[in-house]
Simulated scan of single mutants.
Amino acid sequence: MGDAFDEDCDYLFKAVLIGDSGVGKSNLLSRFAKDEFRLDSKPTIGVEFAYRNIKVADKIIKAQIWDTAGQERFRAITSSYYRGALGALLVYDITRRETYESVRKWLQELREFGSEHMVVVLVGNKCDLGQSREVEKEEGKGFAENERLFFMETSALQNVNVEEAFMQMITKIHHQTGQKCLESKMNETTRINVPNGKEIKIVDEVTETKQSSCCSI
């Protein structure tokens, strides 16, 4: 992970994992970042994060994914945890309905402390345990559609849709960033009306440079 951190990249995207304790947030992250899964995974204490470099279109994006404890006693870190995050995976366990019932609470917190334009993917994890399912896929999908979230069921154990869930979030963030850059460039030309009726264009020259340290968007 240290080598990846030193590589050049075009953008640094921060994203967060949220959801109740035990839904599999840490194993989703380790599967995505290192392609690892631990059956003896311990509850996260405080905050952990991992990096992974991804190529989207012609850009190298360093995804910085933060994982936090789902237990209430660690919620004091909330505001700093969400600061600067462009995306979130909101995770529940399909075999524990109470974790799905908590999704609304987490979403409310996300909207209170997070960015207005944050990309959110609702993730129903542990789909490999279908025989113990307590939340139907259609229910999760319906909630996501109503709240304008993306939706995917995953299995960190069997590596089902883990890559796809993170990539859906990161690709959408990249798309939004591209739109913002385009709007910014369009606004570089400012028109000012002067008393004699003429129009003056003020153009700010913006030069993109690839730096060894990534740009945080």
Rank of each mutant, 00 (worst) to 15 (best):
M169A: 11
E164C: 05
N193P: 00
E183I: 13
N193S: 09
A165W: 06
G178F: 09
T190S: 14
I192V: 14
E164N: 06
M167P: 01
I170V: 03
N193R: 11
C181G: 13
K172S: 07
K172Q: 08
H175E: 09
T177C: 10
M169N: 03
H174K: 06
T177S: 13
T190V: 15
T171L: 07
Q168D: 01
L182C: 08
H175S: 08
C181T: 15
N187D: 06
T190P: 03
C181N: 13
V194M: 06
Q179T: 09
Q179I: 13
K180N: 00
K185N: 11
N193G: 10
N187F: 01
E188R: 07
K185G: 06
N193L: 05
I192A: 12
T190Q: 11
K180S: 02
E183P: 07
N187T: 00
E164D: 11
L182V: 14
K180L: 03
E188N: 02
T190C: 10
T190W: 06
T177W: 04
K180E: 02
G178L: 14
I173D: 03
E183V: 14
T177A: 12
A165D: 04
H175A: 04
T189S: 15
L182A: 09
G178A: 12
G178H: 12
L182T: 13
K172I: 04
S184P: 01
R191M: 09
F166T: 02
I170Y: 05
N187Y: 00
Q179K: 15
T171C: 08
L182I: 09
R191K: 14
V194K: 12
K172F: 01
T177E: 07
A165V: 04
H175C: 06
V194A: 07
K172E: 09
T177N: 14
T171Y: 05
K185F: 13
M169T: 00
K180Q: 03
E183D: 15
T177V: 12
H174P: 00
T189M: 10
E188K: 05
S184A: 14
Q179R: 13
K180A: 05
L182H: 10
S184G: 10
E164P: 06
L182Q: 13
Q168E: 11
C181P: 07
H174E: 03
I192Y: 08
H174R: 02
G178I: 13
K185Y: 08
I173R: 03
N187L: 03
K185S: 10
T171D: 03
N193D: 08
T189D: 12
Q168M: 15
L182G: 05
Q168Y: 03
I170N: 04
M169F: 00
K185A: 14
I173M: 11
H174I: 03
N187H: 07
E164S: 11
T190H: 12
M169C: 07
M186T: 11
M169P: 05
T189K: 15
K185R: 10
T177G: 12
G178P: 04
F166C: 02
Q176Y: 01
K180P: 05
T189R: 15
M186A: 15
V194I: 11
N193I: 04
H174S: 01
V194F: 08
N193A: 06
C181E: 13
T190E: 11
M167R: 02
I173N: 00
Q176W: 04
Q179N: 13
T171R: 13
R191P: 01
T189L: 15
E188P: 00
H175I: 02
T190N: 13
M167L: 12
Q179Y: 03
M169Q: 04
C181W: 15
N187R: 07
E188A: 00
V194Y: 10
G178E: 14
K180T: 00
